[in-house]
Write a protein that binds this DNA or RNA. Structure first.
Lengths: 237, 237, 237, 237
DNA sequence: GATGAATGAGCCTTCATTCAT
DNA sequence: TATGAATGAAGGCTCATTCAT
């Protein structure tokens, strides 16, 4: 697994050598941030810790297989604090999805929107931007993707939010492709399916990179993907 | 969701809402199979029911979010019977993975192996066969894919089996690509990453189809994918 | 543990190497008895097998911690056959208790009854007979003792039967002691407590021998016990 | 059963028989302890309640036959709280064993160690101290003894701890006996077996007292035992 | 702001028991 | 005679959630 992914999760303390009765825990917050002087700083620090731990664990183990206790432990806090800041496990994930949307999806769509050039330029830009972003801070993008898979066929708030976020992406891509087709820059006749394929390839690639971890070179994979996507697998003669 | 996916799961009897008089319970089993006369038939029928229900629910909700009670109910049996045939929830999934491997992966690799022609022919064959198979009986392939995502970063029997199965696929693809490169049929220089991309595209496409359900035309998606994969998105001039 | 104790229990087959689906079992009865020709022989053979397996497992693990499946497996039969012969787990144990009473308690009391001589002679005979019996076929005596401990403070059929059996023993001992005291052969003034002590010492010794197994020499222990019991720990000057 | 034994177990609230209106639940905790003001007090109070209930029930019914629900109910708490303080049923028992060792075994061995005099004095001291202790607070000693019987022939953490604790006792006794034999104070030639017999007599006596309950006079039994042990059953002429 | 205590619902698993064959 | 299939109740354990402090 890429080193970045484990950053937060690996910090967990791991209950010292079988005590007979569970003892009262000794506090420890000092590990990362030096000393959060004001209350506001404390707040932000705690929220950041919890978010990072959640991202890492939800990506590594999935939402259902991760307990709030694990998250709290990884963040150096207690379960109760999660409720203080997020109100519930579901709301915690919803918050993370919002984070991810703001940090990953919005910038991506903004970036693509600003590209001047043909539809293929824009699609290439989409791949490039998303991949680079995904390789540098994979947690947020991966959380989005894995959650979108884990919550398929559901009918809850999370599922709904996921659908909205993905619809934004589909919509943007379809606009680009439609325009490209009108200008003859794109070969395909089926806009919707091509947009789906772009998303599928992008998501599949991230998952694949996450799966194979050290066995694969992220940057090579990215380059392979978008080159292939533009020109196909066959050598251009 | 594609209609096929719900086939088994929707059959569930729903526990007959508080009967006033404790009469003779209606035998749930009679609903579908006419008469499982012998023990062997009974056995096979029950195993089939449980497997189908498990496939449907694991695909729809994921392993961790599916309870054995749900599965048993969907199969018209009780939790205990799952333990009679499989010995634990984990073993149940391992059994399904084996089913999926035999019904999906092995035929795929066999098929590709038998194709005579260039490396691109084989890769195209890979996509075509896998997609058609995946569209006609999606449960098994999807179970494999979703499980492979849900069990990343684990260290249990399921994770290990998944890795083995995927390694078979990577290995076959790399052999093909390596040979293709030697004969100049393939442009890419990076075999491992290209194999990964093929898997990523294939898995991503299945997931995408599963996600968008009725919104997308499976056959069109498939055609789009492997055309694009071979020739790229740009129109061949 | 003394070798005798494990005789039956160790035969269990131990389910062959992780099959995916639990297979249909292949029958095997031939292990011990050559071929039970008539139905009656079959009956007796099966009952003997089940009883032996039960004695061994109840002694080794206790009643509550032993499952009928384990017993059936150890006997080379199936759970159903236990119900065929014994009707329930409780009745099975009751049967064993009856066996034990007939094979261990009755002969012991008969033996002591026939001893001619002083009260101390009879008590010594009690110890000697019980110990030798206990060392040669420990299962039945140990089953009685361990059950009497496991079912203390209960109010079921088993507890009642145990009480009856032990009352027989107390009663016999008290009669002997009372007579001995009248004839000045016994020092103690407290009959009931002395009878209790005899039982306690006898049971405790069997348990101790069972506990320490190979670490202790059964015959030495027996001799130590009744010598001490008669003459005390201090050297007779 | 001796009255002391039921002390805690009989307190159980018994779930208030179907309340018609779902009113404010009466706080069960208030029954005994006045005001567990601070968290630490709450903590200690709960642990004490759970421990006492466990001791009583494990002694009365045995480990395997006692459910955590029963324990929790007897303690006026819920199952979950057991997992909050101890981490499993096994760890709960391990904790009790530690309690018992500290409260019963250690003081006993310390006491015997401090006795100045012959080996027989020490052995007599062993019996006397153990018996008095056992009669005044029987739960802990009985838990140790009954557990040691229930967990024979096992290979788990509990069995191991039991063996360690008993080895401490054997070891201390053997040292005393060995020294006694050298000084001619002890008649027997077989140290190991005599040590075993002492333990057997002591344990057997406790079990016997527990078994016969009100039918027997504990103090008389104790006196009978160690007098007999020292001087034998025969009247010293 | 954050914690430790406690709960209760739900989960996986075991097991005595029933029954048709 | 004996088995394999199936059940249902109960047990141990996890975990999201609440709350007083």
């Amino acid at each position: 697994m890429p080193a970045l992914l484990k950053a937060t999760a690996s910090k967990r303390p791991k209950a010292a050598a079988t005590p007979v009765v569970r003892g009262t825990k000794t506090k420890k917050r000092s590990s990362k941030s030096p000393k959060p002087a004001t209350n506001l700083e404390l707040r932000e620090d705690s929220i950041r810790r919890l978010s990072e731990a959640s991202f890492a664990l939800f990506v590594a183990k999935g939402y259902h297989a991760t307990s709030l206790d694990e998250i709290a432990r990884a963040a150096g806090l207690t379960k109760g604090s999660i409720y203080f800041y997020f109100n519930s496990k579901q709301r915690l994930l919803l918050g993370l999805l919002e984070d991810a949307r703001e940090a990953v999806v919005s910038p991506l769509l903004d970036h693509v929107h600003k590209i001047e050039g043909s539809a293929t330029d824009k699609i290439a830009g989409f791949f490039r931007f998303s991949s680079l972003n995904g390789i540098e801070q994979p947690q947020k993008l991966l959380c989005l993707i894995k959650t979108s898979i884990e919550f398929r066929d559901r009918d809850d708030a999370i599922s709904k939010r996921i659908v909205e976020i993905y619809d934004e992406i589909y919509s943007a891509l379809e606009t680009i492709l439609e325009a490209g087709k009108k200008r003859g820059e794109i070969a395909s006749t089926s806009t919707k399916e091509l947009a789906s394929m772009i998303v599928a390839t992008n998501d599949g690639m991230m998952l694949e990179w996450h799966r194979r971890g050290a066995n694969i070179d992220g940057r090579k994979l990215v380059r392979t993907v978008w080159t292939t996507f533009l020109h196909g697998i066959e050598p251009s003669n």
